[in-house]
């Protein structure tokens, strides 16, 4: 039931995820943060099987951090995406695969470009201008097809995100109430009041 969105703009990536933690039909928590900061310029929104999500996200977080400690610089977004994808692809053919879907948003400080990756639990990796996971994708992707602009300012990007969230609230029966929104750009990662 989790929903996550992400979109790129001029020099930034916005990543948004709902904040509900549910047990079957019961909401048990309303302020769960489902977006991890993997490195100074890398964000990862994770959704999927409860338990798997946090376990997998923490595994990734620690390993990305370890790489940064060992090698001074952090992995660049394309390399981090490749490594994370491989982790999921290997997991898929293991005894107990992780059931986790990811949106990876990053800013490459060496080439000054924003990157967004759509990754699913099978280990499918796609580099995209905008992306969504969960039921939200059925509403948001068509809206983003119409309104997304890769050259948009942050304000315009947030307005487009607002359209997606409003549409989900309007049309989806099991729509979540609250979203956490984070943005990554040349200055690093920050959370926005939304």
């Amino acid at each position: 039931m989790d929903i996550s969105f992400a979109l790129t703009g001029k020099g930034y990536v916005i990543v948004a995820a709902d904040t509900t933690a549910a047990h079957s039909i019961i909401k048990v928590k309303l302020d769960e943060d489902k977006i991890k900061t993997l490195s100074p310029h890398l964000l990862m929104a994770y959704t999927g099987e409860p338990g798997d999500t946090v376990q997998f996200a923490e595994y990734i977080e620690r390993n990305i951090r370890l790489y940064q400690i060992r090698n001074i610089y952090a992995l660049r977004p394309p390399s981090a995406a490749s490594w994370i994808r491989r982790s999921l692809a290997d997991s898929l053919r293991s005894r107990k695969p992780y059931s986790v879907n990811l949106l990876l948003g990053g800013y490459d400080t060496s080439t000054h470009t924003p990157h967004l990756y759509w990754i699913d639990y099978l280990g499918t990796l796609a580099s995209v201008p905008f992306a969504a996971h969960g039921y939200g994708s059925y509403f948001a992707l068509s809206l983003l097809d119409r309104y997304h602009d890769p050259e948009a300012s942050l304000e315009e990007g947030l307005a487009t995100l607002r359209r997606c969230i409003d549409e989900v609230s309007k049309r989806l029966i099991v729509s979540p109430g609250k979203y956490k929104v984070k943005v990554v750009d040349k200055d690093g990662v920050r959370e926005l009041d939304f």
Binding site: L75, P78, S82
Partner: peptide
């Protein structure tokens, strides 16, 4: 193979 990038020189 692991990181889909050319190895950094210092590494």
């Amino acid at each position: 193979y692991l990181y889909n990038e050319d190895i950094p020189v210092e590494l």
